[in-house]
Every structure is written in structure tokens, then in C-alpha cells.
Amino acid sequence: MGKRKKHYISAHVNKRKKSDGVYGKLEIGMQGVLITHDRGKENLCRNDAFKILNYFADKWYGTVKGEKTLSEKPGATVVSIDEDVGGSDEEDIDAALSKEVDCIKDTAHVRKRFYAVKSGCNNVVFIKTFDLKPSNFVRRVIQTIAAETTDDHYDADIPAARGVLRIHPVDYSCRATMSEINSMAKRALPQLLGDVEQRNIGKESFLKEYNVMFRGRNNNEFGMHIVTDAIVEVVKDVAENWRYNCRSTDIYVIVEIIINLVRASVVENYARYKKFNVRELFVERAMKKCGNAKDGDGRKEQQQEKQEQYETVKEEKKQNEQHQEQEQEKQPENQHEQQYEKEEEQKAQKLEEK
């Protein structure tokens, strides 16, 4: 038989799956980080997100180490090949070789702290986390990025992130049904709101008020008002001290539905930190670093003053126009009166002449 044709070979090669660094799909119980990005920039977003998350995780929690090797495991014994052993030497040598291979595999295996998971919708990347609480981790990341140059926790070596937009933690998840949402809220909200309350003990400006932010992606079964009402009713039962305020911009209960799964978490200082938009935080950080933040504020004040001057001039001009219109309306009446007076004077002069 001759050689296979080229199109058969190419078709066979194209069937092979290419690894893009994404493993599995979203499932119930996954904890992690939900990140939004620009259209068509998924790979850039994923790479930048891994850079930032790994940088902070390695800095705060240490680098990820591999699992213990066979020699480090309790009760394990390693047989050296060079030792003189009696009996069946071949079996002992084979056992020693197999154990050495297992040790090499164990040392080569390193567990990662973050994994990318297919989100199932466009412009969204989900990164699964291990051995850390997403809400606390994301809060520290955002605070560090937005820190002033004079703060103690300011970090000048943070890697830039051009492809990352908003970053939201995911602490709890369930199926997209009302019964599941209610049960998840009863489990999650007492703990999450309690953590926020503990972090703000002693602050006079702290108010036990929250808002609900809902976002549905590839799901039309639930609306904002339905989910918001359900969360408010649950909070009334499990956390009576907290009050719902639709105008609050500080503490948010974030509920996001992706296809048929619900993701929930609680964040604080949401408006202060640009709604957790990492790109905007990096822009503000660069302005502060270059010393242009004050200049920018001065420009804003100048623009406001110019706008106020323009509005005052516009009002004065409008008032002048109205005054002129009123005078023009009165002018015909005055002219008629003047003509009538002139005619009367002329008549009186004619009578005198006669």
C-alpha cells in the first residue's frame, strides 16, 4: 500500500484536542474568583489573573510545595539498589526501582493553588481556588492595589493587569432554584455578614446596612427583584440587626447566576474601590505614583468652576432676553399712546390758531 494522503493525516491531527489551560466546568460547591474581561481577550485576562493571584498568594501564604515524597511519608522504607541483599535479588531490585520511580513522580508533582474553569458564557473567566477563602483574599488584593504610597501595606512590585476588569469572590454556590437559593443564603449570610461586622468593630461610621447586586448570565428564569426579595427575607430571619438599603454603596451581597448555577459572596467598600475594577485601580495607582492625582483634582475643580460660570452667564443672558421681549411687547402700546398725544397736541394748536 502506498502512503496515506495528506488530507487524511491533517484531518487526524486536527481531531486532537489542544490544551488551553482550562480544566473542567463550573460545578456546585466550587470556590474561587469570577473575573470579567473585554470581548475576545479571554487568554490575556486569564494570564494576567494568574500573575496577580499567584503573586499575592505566594507573598502572603508562601509558595506551593509538592506533596511529601515516599521517604517523607510515615512508615515508608526505601531500599537502596547498592545494598547487598540475600534471597531473590531481582525482586528486591525491581521493588527498589519502582519505589524510586514513585519518589520521582511525587517530587515532580506540584499542586497548583489556582485552576481556570470554563464559565460557560462570554467575557467571564472563573478561577478555582484551594486552601484559602476567596472573599478575604480578594479583599486584601483590592486593598493592596488601591493602597496609597504612604500606607504600610503599599506594594510597588505588583504585576500589571491589562486584561482584568472586575474581580468578584465566590464563597458559596448552588443550583438556580428558589429553594436552593434560600437554603444557601441561610447558610452563607450569617457567616459572611458576621465577618464584616467583626472587621468593623469599634468604627463609629460603620452601619449595618447592605445592598444586593444581582447579575444573570445566560439565564432568563430569575429577575433582580425576585432574587433581591428572597435575600432580604432571609437576612431578616438570620441577621435581624442588618437592614436593607437600596442606596447603600458600601456593603454588597453579590448574587450572580451563570446558566443554572448561583454564585454568592459579600464585599465591602465596593464603591470606594471602583466596584472592584482592577484596571481602574491600576490607572489611579499610576496617577498617584506619577504625582498627577492632585493635578487631576485641580483640573476637575477648574472644570467645575468654568461650568458654574457658564451656567451663571447663560442664566443672565436668558433673563436679559426675557426682559427685552417684555419691553418689545410694551413698545407698541407706548408708541400708540405717544401718537395719540401728538395728535391731540396738533388739534389743540389748530384750535388756538383759529
Rank of each mutant, 00 (worst) to 15 (best):
R247T: 05
R247D: 08
T249E: 11
Y252T: 10
I254C: 07
I254K: 12
I254P: 02
E256Q: 15
I258V: 12
I258W: 09
I258T: 08
I259P: 09
I259G: 03
I259Q: 14
N260T: 10
N260L: 04
L261H: 15
L261D: 07
V262K: 06
S265K: 03
S265V: 13
S265G: 07
S265T: 14
V266W: 06
V266L: 00
V267I: 11
V267C: 09
E268Y: 11
K275G: 09
F276H: 15
N277C: 12
V278F: 07
E280I: 06
E280S: 12
L281C: 06
L281M: 12
F282P: 01
V283L: 02
E284H: 12
R285S: 08
A286N: 15
K288I: 06
N292E: 04
N292R: 09
N292W: 14
A293H: 06
G296D: 11
G298N: 11
R299S: 04
R299M: 11
K300C: 06
E301S: 08
E301C: 00
Q302R: 13
Q302K: 11
Q304T: 11
Q304Y: 08
Q307E: 09
Q309F: 05
E311L: 13
E311R: 13
E311I: 08
V313E: 11
K314I: 00
K314T: 01
E315M: 00
E316L: 03
K318I: 00
Q319N: 06
Q319T: 13
N320Q: 10
N320E: 02
E321N: 03
E321A: 04
E321W: 00
Q322L: 02
H323K: 13
Q324W: 01
E325T: 13
E325I: 08
E327M: 03
Q328T: 04
E329G: 04
Q331T: 00
P332W: 01
E333F: 02
E333L: 04
N334A: 08
Q335R: 14
H336F: 05
E337Q: 12
Q339H: 08
Q339S: 02
K342Y: 05
K342H: 07
E343W: 02
E344H: 05
E344T: 08
E344A: 10
E344I: 10
A348K: 15
